[in-house]
Simulated scan of single mutants.
Amino acid sequence: MVEPVSAQLAVIGTLLAEARGPIRTSVVDIGSQWAQFAGWLNANAGRLSDANHWYGIALEWATEANDHDMIGTALNMKGHLAWMSGKTSQMISLSEAASRRGASRGVRSLARQQAARGYAITGDYEETERRLDQAEVLAWAAADHPEDEPDWIYFFDPHFLQMQRGLAYSILGRHTAAIDLLLTGLAAVPGDIRRSEWVGWYVSRLATAHAREGDPESACRVSAEAVEIARATDAGRLLADLRRLHSRLAGQWLDLPAVIELGERLR
């Protein structure tokens, strides 16, 4: 997907070299969406420098087009990159900036929940809960007015937020609550996207929560589903994450049949 998207962006760049007036505004508006998509594709492939470049272009073009939804989204995605890079302070700061902009409720909810995860990483229970509660209010308001939301957050709803709350709770060590939230959120994912790569990542987080709760059988059972998703979507990063989880399981329960079987699945 990266190559055709890059080709489309090259065409947009050529058009912008000559575009003026209202036509230019329309081109940069559309271009910002393509640039954000290019950023996501590169981030998903582990090319974080390229992803940061395209998120920066998306932010620049969205600012020129006065598209507050994309401005907030680009800032939030740069915060996501900071999380991927282990830069928690930057992750929180960019997420907070995204949530302060004049974007839609859904975009601001996504930013608040990401900030909550950052606070969870720092061990700040109070700020984690505060941002999650704020995100939930915004998420339900967005669900009541879907016509106000940009197309590119089609995946976001209150059930997605449940999974994010579960992730934050797992980071804080509240594994039982995390498992319940992740199970509930995943059960609400529509069947046509249940096998998507990004859903597989939450399945792997559920498996990790089971492992941290001391339930290796459940961890292996859930991991098996994530392995199937990773194989079907050619998700190398997801497979690598599952192999790391298996290594931790094998370190504690080396002779457990479920752990042995999971290792065979991951070969």
Rank of each mutant, 00 (worst) to 15 (best):
R108A: 03
G118C: 09
L110K: 00
W152V: 07
S170I: 05
Q90I: 14
Y154Q: 00
A62M: 12
D148A: 11
I171N: 01
T88L: 15
N76H: 04
G123H: 02
R130N: 01
E64A: 12
Q114N: 15
M84A: 04
N76V: 04
N66F: 06
W152M: 08
I179Y: 03
T176N: 13
V137C: 04
S89T: 14
E129D: 03
T128P: 01
A135I: 10
L167V: 08
D148N: 14
K87G: 11
I92A: 07
T122H: 03
L172V: 12
W83S: 13
D148G: 10
A143F: 05
P158N: 12
H68T: 06
G166E: 10
E129M: 09
R130T: 11
L94Q: 11
H80N: 12
H68K: 09
R131D: 01
I153W: 00
T128S: 00
P150R: 00
Y119K: 10
M77L: 14
S93P: 07
A177F: 13
T73S: 15
H80F: 15
D157F: 03
S89G: 03
W152A: 03
H175K: 11
Q114Y: 10
M84I: 01
Q162M: 15
F156V: 01
Y119G: 09
S89I: 08
A115S: 08
R108E: 12
D157I: 10
Q162P: 12
A139E: 04
A178W: 07
A103R: 09
I71L: 03
S170Y: 08
R174S: 11
A103L: 05
F155P: 08
N76A: 04
D69M: 12
D133M: 10
H80Y: 07
G86I: 14
N66A: 02
L94H: 10
Y154K: 02
H68M: 13
N76E: 09
G173F: 07
D144P: 06
Q164S: 06
L132P: 01
S104H: 10
S89D: 15
T63C: 05
D133N: 14
G173W: 09
Y125C: 09
I153G: 01
A141V: 08
H145W: 02
E136K: 11
A115I: 15
L167H: 11
E136N: 10
L75K: 10
S85H: 12
W83H: 15
A141Y: 06
A82G: 09
Y125S: 13
A139K: 01
A98I: 05
N76M: 06
T122P: 04
T73P: 01
I121H: 15
M84Y: 14
M91P: 04
A143R: 12
A103W: 00
A178M: 02
L110E: 01
R130Y: 03
I171H: 06
R108S: 03
R112W: 15
A178L: 04
F155N: 08
Q90K: 11
Q162F: 11
E64P: 04
E127P: 06
P158F: 13
T128M: 04
S93M: 09
S170R: 13
P158V: 05
M91C: 14
R117C: 00
A103H: 00
F160H: 12
D133R: 15
G102Q: 14
P146Q: 03
E147V: 11
A111V: 03
E136S: 13
T176F: 07
A111M: 02
D124V: 13
Q113K: 05
D133S: 10
W83Q: 13
Q134Y: 11
